[in-house]
């Protein structure tokens, strides 16, 4: 489970439901506190934590707003 992963959350589609935060086994996501144009609190990747690229956040996101970039090596 090595590799560097970037979690891209599209503020255009995110509704701030928090499912991705709850789903992440490594607590990599946290609330940004910043409001999107639609008024939602959009999560961001905590760069101090290690994302394993499991893509559970991408799979659980109801709004298809999350893209996990990077490949498992």
């Amino acid at each position: 489970m090595r590799g560097t992963f970037k979690i891209v959350i599209d503020a255009k589609w995110c509704k701030g439901c928090g499912l991705c935060l709850a789903e992440c086994p490594k607590d990599v996501l946290q609330w940004s506190g910043a409001r999107s144009a639609k008024g939602y609190n959009v999560p961001v990747q905590d760069e101090t934590k290690v994302c394993t690229g499991c893509r559970l956040c991408e799979l659980i996101c109801p709004d298809q707003a999350i893209r996990v970039e990077g490949e498992r090596q």
Binding site: D10, K12, W13, K15, G16, C17, G18, L19, Y40, E58, C61, P62, D63, Q64, A65, I66, R67
Partner: peptide, 24 residues
């Protein structure tokens, strides 16, 4: 938006009507 969604969703029909956190 992820690649699967870009590939298959009918973009002109978006956004989806679902409430935040809906499982649909």
């Amino acid at each position: 938006m992820n690649e699967i969604a870009e590939k298959y969703l009918r973009q002109e029909a978006l956004p989806m009507i679902f409430c935040p956190g809906c499982g649909d």
